[in-house]
Design a protein around this nucleic acid. Structure first.
Lengths: 198, 198
DNA sequence: GTCGGTTTATGACTCAAATCATAAAGCAAA
DNA sequence: TTTGCTTTATGATTTGAGTCATAAACCGAC
């Protein structure tokens, strides 16, 4: 999102996290801009009885957690390392300075926020009013269309566990497993040793 | 969001719509920036069997429908006039010119997008994993905290119909009616001739 | 190779919200 | 003040996803 040179010239630090590490918690006050160098990070909420909802999964070059930075609000969700990862970390004042000085960066931020808003609009409509199979197909197609999914000879391989799909769509694992099988039967997707292809 | 002077100096037009008018449709290509002068506009989706999901309701001074403008994507939802209203309408190229020339405006856009993203994060987590009463209370509290809700002696009056609350939370009207009554019984809210107060 | 943890799988059962039906109350316009 | 439409209300019934239980398949570490 923001180039390495620009980040480093503004004294961004590199910081390593190991799988499972909590980068920040829901309810905390944001103080930093984060951008992924390597690895994956998820933002998620846990409801009263521990069930998880995944707001999004982020990959290298993507940033996360900026919105409340601009609003002086508390984080609405947790950020957790999905795998070992390395991040650029830039303090809030330096980050704001950076975007004020650089029109291109602020345009990039706008596009980034617009993109996430688009995803959330699409999924919110799905989650609130569509059946499990429909929701899952939308998630899969959205992932293919807008995320980094390499096409193989069997089709696009969806690199999400059933549990992750469940947490992204607000369903239970068992429901996802059953819906995925139903979709295979309808020839909407293929399952090749447990991986979903489309 | 963007000042009247700035909009008019960039040749924005004023356009009137009457209650129920469709301002743009899901699937269309965005060509304009819209900002409300008076009245209210909702953005919503309709699922396969006609059920509505309300993405958001927008009031005077607020803009809507920009995200896909920045992404060259199709509108993910419909925009419909909730009441008679008047809007500023600015063509895409002129709008992009305006924000490029004006750092303050682009910062305002960022804040606006961040705000909507925050709302969507909160509601997505609710809708996907909380009970009806919890969802409704969150919607109500969010509305009070972040939208224009005047405090009266009975508390904050929530100016949403039961149907709108249903369409905002992904519930059915009957469920909302019952949950609202349950919340009254628990003294979380008051109902004074059918209006909800908190 | 074996062990332990994760992921996928499947059946039986439950239950809360959706659905369906019906009507009262409120409100705006004729 | 009557008419027609919207909004709120309430009971009965259905249903599909959630829950619970159990296990097989897979995978990485030792």
């Amino acid at each position: 999102m923001i180039t390495e040179e620009l980040l480093e010239s503004h004294q961004a630090l590199r910081k390593k996290y190991t799988k499972g590490d909590i980068i920040f918690r829901e309810g905390e006050l944001p103080n930093h801009y984060f951008q992924i160098i390597s690895g994956e990070v998820k933002m998620c909420n846990f409801n009263d009885d521990g069930r998880e909802f995944i707001q999004g999964i982020f990959s290298p070059k993507q940033s996360f957690g900026e919105p409340p930075l601009f609003l002086n609000r508390l984080y609405p969700a947790n950020a957790i390392a999905v795998s070992d990862c390395e991040l650029f970390v830039l303090s809030k004042p330096l980050f704001l300075k950076l975007i004020n000085e650089n029109a291109l960066v602020s345009m990039a931020i706008i596009e980034n926020l617009a993109q996430r808003l688009h995803y959330k609009s699409v999924m919110a409509a799905e989650i609130s009013s569509q059946e499990p199979e429909h929701r899952l197909l939308k998630l899969i197609d959205y992932s293919i269309r807008f995320f980094k999914i390499e096409k193989e000879k069997e089709g696009h391989r969806i690199d999400l566990t059933r549990q992750q799909m469940a947490d992204l769509t607000g369903l239970r694992v068992e429901t996802v497993i059953r819906a995925i099988k139903a979709l295979e039967k309808k020839n909407e997707i293929k399952i090749i040793n447990r991986k979903v292809f489309r």
